[in-house]
Amino acid sequence: MGITVTIRTNSGVNTEPEIKTLEPILKVENVWKLYHAGKVEVPALRGVNLDVLPGEAVAVMGPSGCGKSSLLYVIGGLAKASRGKVLVDGNDLVSMTDGERTKLRRHKIGFVFQRFNLLPALSAKGNIAIAQYIHGDGFDPHRFEVVTKMLGLVGRLNHRPSEMSGGEQQRVAIARAIINEPKILLADEPTGNLDTKNSEIVLDMLRRLNKDLGQTIVMITHNPEATTYFDRVVHMRDGVIVDGIPAD
């Protein structure tokens, strides 16, 4: 089922706006995620519904333990939903095998984590290039140059993570995530380990990625200021999205 949106495609006089139907790039339908603590089932997600359009930037907010990270991992195919449907670019992750989800992740998803998660043995260049290697198309020097220039990493490419600041590391992580032009960029509290200045830089870069390149972004955050950079903010509580539900 598509979402009907109005897109103004022609600025000419006496031209009626064209009506186009956009399919969501990400569609989450009644998704449950249950974890097992011994014999007890603990629900992390309890019937989540979410649609994200191509080129949209969505921030997911909520208190700790509300299921934000679980939602991100389910969307990214790192964890399998217990029930429901997760459609990424038309592919249902729930019905996929582990290998198929790995392949989808390789080609359509980019991750940015709170703790940067760079490979310590590799330089910044190596950390970005390994994503290209895993993607399977080999090293693309042009794309590499464009991305590293855009993120201001050109002078830091030969440095290892231990030799870089948190802000620089996160920029490398963003470069790694977008180097293969993923359909969706998933960011798990990307400013959580950064000071205010670096947070602003990273958020600004994410916004530029979205506005300039049309990158679809789903970001989890605790930072209320971060939401100002995004098109839409959804709130989660106790494993469900509560937008539209009146606050207590």
Binding site: L78, G99, K103, R105, R106, N117, I134
Partner: peptide, 12 residues
Amino acid sequence: DIGVLKSLGASK
């Protein structure tokens, strides 16, 4: 690191 590789789509 293994988790990171998996998040990048590295196969088993």
